[in-house]
Amino acid sequence: MKKVLVVDDSLSVARQLAKIIAESGDFLYIGHAKNGAEAIKMNHTEDPEIICMDMNMPGMDGLTALRTLSAMDTEVKVVMVTSLGGVGDKFTEAIKLGAKNVISKPFEAGNVLRILREL
């Protein structure tokens, strides 16, 4: 099963995503980072295959973390899960930085799983 790390400052979003991932049977939820800096640290210690990451977080935001992860040349696949997904400039920046997809909030469980399975 592919290991998935969730990165979001919101406890409720982390819970929603953890539930969707854990109940899918296809993925292993390995934990929750509250900002970009924690995500980079947990990418090193937990070695996830997929990261679901918010953009708008206090401390290091999602795009900065994505830029850092891309520069580190890791194998991890990043999907942004964000309320800012519909903002054209933010979406374009994320895709150009190497995000595999951008899911807008509010999200639906089926949509999230379909996108994760296609990675």
Binding site: S10, S12, V13, N56, S83, L84, G86, V87, G88, S104
Partner: peptide
């Protein structure tokens, strides 16, 4: 947190709709 997240969903979508209208809106957490 759930109320803050609901506000976040609304404001993120407001920023997206605004960008379609040619208006730049940035949001903080």
């Amino acid at each position: 947190d759930t109320v803050m997240e609901f506000a976040n969903i609304v404001c993120g979508n407001v920023a997206a709709k605004a960008s379609q209208m040619g208006v730049i809106i940035n949001i903080t957490p």
